[in-house]
């Protein structure tokens, strides 16, 4: 058998050498290898691992995404205030710098860990996992991950959450879902925030924002609310109650294997 005349090619291995095959040769004797692996496979692997952590503690994880200043932290403050006695809430805060948001959450009596991403424009599954080592999930019903304020990058990274919730404040423009389709396509719930300002804004129509979301083939529910004034909060709070209950029922139904506390991490990642 040799590698020159092709006599080592048999019926059993021919398919590997043909074009597109695992061992296909290309020009100059180079080898082409089919991979077909997601570029975020390391992140996705870590996200699945985070999901195991959440399952082991029966926690519902929600990834909050929006532009900076659309009211994510205010929404969390109002939510903790409203549900504080009923559901135990923990928060992971993502910002480029400062502990400000985590402090605001702690002032409302909920545990919070701040991730300062430095120059990174999004949270990834590794950063969330790191934060999980500083936040006890015991007894929590909901873990909110408040992503970095950004309508672009956070949409690409699975953190292990069960739901994505996107906020769109009425001061931003009702065409945002059409401008940032990756984010608004992947969200499970849209909250139109700062609704108390609708009265003075004549250029934001909730119906247009909803149409832009539907154009992305996204049937997600859309609630309009103002966390500051307490308007429209009931639909959001009921949604949370329902999803927590559904999540606990689903977890009880399926036997989950507890995570090995001595697990080893071999995933590396870098940030600029």
């Amino acid at each position: 058998m040799c590698d020159t005349c092709g006599c080592n090619v048999t019926d059993g291995n021919r398919h590997l050498l043909q074009e597109g095959g695992e061992l296909a040769r290309t020009r100059g004797g180079r080898d082409a290898v089919e991979v077909l692996e997601g570029l975020l496979s390391a992140n996705d692997h870590q996200a699945a691992h985070n999901r195991d952590h959440f399952a082991a503690h029966g926690v519902l994880a929600i990834n909050l995404m929006s532009s900076p200043g659309s009211g994510k932290t205010s929404l969390l403050e109002a939510t903790i205030e409203a549900l504080g006695d009923e559901l135990k809430i923990g928060v992971i805060e993502g910002d480029l710098e400062t502990e400000n948001d985590a402090k605001r959450i702690r002032d409302k009596g909920a545990p919070a860990v701040q991730i300062a991403t430095g120059s990174a424009c999004h949270l990834d599954a590794h950063m969330v996992h790191h934060a999980l080592h500083e936040l006890s999930l015991d007894g929590l019903d909901i873990l909110f991950v408040e992503n970095v304020g950004n309508l672009v990058c956070p949409a690409s990274f699975d953190l292990g959450q069960h739901f994505n919730v996107a906020l769109l404040s009425v001061t931003e423009g009702d065409d945002k879902p059409a401008k940032y389709p990756v984010m608004f396509r992947s969200t499970d719930l849209v909250l139109l925030t700062k609704s108390d300002l609708l009265a003075v804004l004549d250029d934001f129509e909730p119906a247009k924002a909803e149409q832009a979301v539907r154009n992305l083939a996204n049937p997600a529910p859309i609630f309009t609310l103002s966390a500051r004034k307490g308007e429209g909060m009931a639909a959001w709070l009921d949604w949370l109650r329902d999803e927590v209950a559904r999540h606990k029922t689903a977890l009880a139904a399926e036997q989950t294997t507890p995570i090995d506390p001595n697990h080893v991490h071999d995933q590396r990642h870098h940030h600029p």
Partner: peptide, 21 residues
């Protein structure tokens, strides 16, 4: 209608490598 599913267009894949062994 908007009850559609994306069948192509959301990929972010490493498809193939050409190597020297």
């Amino acid at each position: 209608g908007f009850y559609t599913r994306v069948v192509s267009g959301d990929e972010m894949l490493l498809a193939r490598l050409e190597l020297e062994r």
